[in-house]
């Protein structure tokens, strides 16, 4: 599948934003994050920029962005529509939580409830994003049980790395948040490893033989393509990436998304808190941002669509 930049940016940025929002909502209710108004302003502001920036970027790949509002109507069947509804609905408790925290310095009691609601809404939104891919039967690398857990875990891990950086910058560093980021990264790494092992060891049920129904005669191969140059289908669905590049990029993703941030975060937990540890937490978050971008690019580039079986692919 063709990796569109706007969709990669949207899914990774909004994922991190919702992960951060969820941790702020739960963290506030549990008293884990500082109650200071300015901390609320900067941390919720970062979550807002990531979420809103991602949502705006996601409309960039539309043929008619001005009609995007219509996408809220088919929530009964379409995961894309459900994602839109969940994303917009989450802004309501998000706004109440933010206004209470930043303008009225209210974070306790009933004021913590919109934070919890926003946290749940953020989780649901990431879930619906993942389900858009999970529900597409023609793409074996997406239509499997590994996709949704990876999306949720990566949102949590990238959000936790951002939260760890924010509390360090705000002078409220605490080992619990560092350990949380470590645990979330470890969980995401394990799930991603399982995902890669799954796509490496399994293939789509569909083959050139089932696609043409000519399997009874033996092996089916494309003799003549319908046309000489690539069409929309081949450009959009037939994106090919050399295996050697895929493996290199997987190593880069593993290093930048998991190994480096986890090492840096472990240092911030073990070392005495100061300007140095704050810098390490920022480096950890930046490394993860690069890593999750590569991971998401691969998620598209390694996905094969059954339509390629009509264009010479031997498996999907």
């Amino acid at each position: 599948m063709h990796p569109a930049f706007s969709v990669i940016f949207f899914t990774t940025a909004s994922g991190a934003g919702y992960g951060l929002l969820a941790l702020l909502g739960f963290g506030n209710a549990l008293g884990l994050v500082p109650a200071a108004g300015w901390f609320g302003f900067w941390s919720l502001g970062l979550a807002l920029v990531l979420i809103a920036g991602g949502l705006i970027a996601s409309t960039a790949h539309l043929g008619h962005p001005e009609r995007a509002w219509r996408a809220f109507s088919q929530f009964r069947t379409s995961w894309l529509s459900r994602e839109g509804v969940a994303a917009v609905s989450t802004f309501v408790p998000f706004a109440v939580f933010g206004i209470g925290w930043v303008f009225f310095a209210k974070t306790e009691g009933v004021w913590a409830l919109p934070g919890l609601a926003a946290a749940v809404g953020g989780g649901i939104t990431v879930f619906t994003t993942a389900m858009i891919y999970r529900s597409l039967k023609p793409i074996h690398q997406w239509h499997n049980a590994h996709v949704v857990p990876v999306y949720l875990a990566l949102a949590l891990a990238t959000g936790a790395l951002l939260l760890n950086a924010l509390v360090h910058l705000w002078g409220h560093a605490q080992p619990a948040i560092g350990y949380l980021a470590l645990a979330a990264c470890a969980l995401a790494a394990w799930l991603k490893h399982r995902y890669w092992r799954f796509i490496d060891t399994t293939k789509a049920v569909s083959t050139p033989e089932t696609a043409t129904g000519l399997g009874a005669r033996g092996k089916v191969r494309l003799l003549e393509s319908p046309h000489q140059v690539d069409n929309y289908l081949m450009r959009e669905m037939g994106f090919r990436v050399a295996r050697k590049h895929a493996f290199k990029l997987r190593r880069i993703a593993l290093a930048a998304l998991f190994a480096a941030p986890m090492t840096l975060t472990l240092l911030t937990v073990l070392a005495p808190v100061g300007a140095g540890t704050a810098l390490l937490t920022i480096l950890a978050a930046l490394s993860a941002a690069l890593g999750v971008g590569v991971e998401r690019w691969l998620f598209f580039a390694e996905a094969k669509h059954t339509v390629t079986l009509y264009y010479g692919a031997t498996d999907a």
Partner: peptide, 27 residues
């Protein structure tokens, strides 16, 4: 008149029956 050109339908079709019109921005 109501297609937003998100292309998701073309991803959902296993047979490659849908092609995007870049000029009109619709499927």
């Amino acid at each position: 008149d109501t297609c937003i050109g998100c292309k998701l339908c073309s991803w959902a079709c296993p047979y490659g029956a849908r092609e995007f019109d870049d000029d009109d921005g619709v499927m």
